[in-house]
Amino acid sequence: MAGHSKFKNIMHRKGAQDKKRAGLFAKLGKEIMVAAKMGGPDPDSNSRLRLAIATAKSQSMPKDNIERAIKKGAGGDEADTLEEIRYEGYGPGGIAVIVDVLTDNRNRSAADIRAIFNKAGGSMGESGSVAFMFDRVGEILLPTEVGDNDTVFEAALEAGAEDVSSSEDGHEIICQPDDLHAVAGELETKFGDLKGCKLAWKPQNLVPVDEDKVESLFKFLDALDDNDDVQNVTANFDVADDVMEKLAG
């Protein structure tokens, strides 16, 4: 189980459960509100909003929720109070972690995130303390059933992607951040609804996690993900398949 893959990462590791949580839609709604506030309510002229809507749709967020979030953002008020913050640090097993937050209270978020790190035996770092270990990329997820590896690989490269990884969980397409909307649009036209579409942090290298640290690592990642202000959690961990099988059993 590798932390760099969104199929394997915290947000998708609990995908079936998260889709049932109102909290997931609230987080997606926050991003839509901020995008609409910053660039206007028209997705055709607002690339960040286009991506936010695509991500929300990929997580089965109802159309009414999306439209309501756009209106809130365009109207100001609630969106005015939201601030984007990135926290960085080290978690159990020495893994590097990036936590992207949208909050209406910077002090509360900082205290909450620091407490989660401390409780897990980790440590918060300064801005930039671990970000240099990651690359900023565009990431698109497609379901397995849309096509075989070769078909998806050829279509993704033709659309402008840089890399494709396929597994039993699905297809993960990586592209330059500025190309995300164009690549996602072409793949959606060809294959239908996307499973995911967003800007992401991709670790340059992975850190193996010892078996005795895995359970505490996942509790730590879950605690971050369950925080209402946290939008995304990315970590550079790698857990051996046999260890994952033991945990699942």
Rank of each mutant, 00 (worst) to 15 (best):
N105E: 06
G170H: 12
A52R: 03
K198S: 13
E215K: 08
R136Q: 08
G23M: 07
K63H: 11
L24D: 02
D104S: 15
K71I: 15
D18K: 14
R106I: 15
V183R: 04
V214E: 01
G75C: 09
L221V: 05
V164W: 14
I32C: 04
I98C: 07
A161E: 08
A2F: 09
A182P: 00
N236R: 11
D42R: 09
D241I: 04
D222T: 12
I116V: 12
G121R: 01
G15I: 14
Q59V: 08
A54L: 15
P203K: 09
N227G: 01
L247C: 04
G91S: 02
I32M: 13
L224Q: 02
R68A: 15
G93D: 02
R86F: 13
A54Q: 09
T151N: 09
K37L: 09
A22M: 12
E188S: 14
G76P: 10
D178W: 10
A200D: 12
V34P: 03
D193K: 14
V130W: 10
V137L: 05
A200K: 06
D104V: 07
L141G: 11
V230H: 10
A22N: 11
R50T: 10
R21I: 05
G39P: 05
I70C: 07
A111M: 06
A248E: 13
L206T: 06
G23Q: 08
I113Q: 01
A200S: 15
K72P: 00
H12Y: 13
F134P: 02
N46Y: 07
T151M: 14
L194V: 03
E126C: 00
K14W: 15
A16V: 14
G185M: 11
A115G: 04
I116E: 01
A235M: 08
L82R: 12
F220M: 05
L199R: 11
S165G: 04
V146G: 08
Q231L: 14
F220S: 02
D18P: 00
S127A: 13
I53P: 03
D212L: 01
S216R: 07
F132A: 08
I10R: 10
D77C: 02
S129M: 12
A156H: 06
R68H: 14
D104H: 10
E139N: 13
T103N: 06
A69E: 12
G23H: 05
D210Y: 01
R114M: 04
P92L: 03
V209E: 05
L49H: 10
S45T: 15
G125R: 04
A184N: 01
E168P: 00
L194Q: 02
E84D: 09
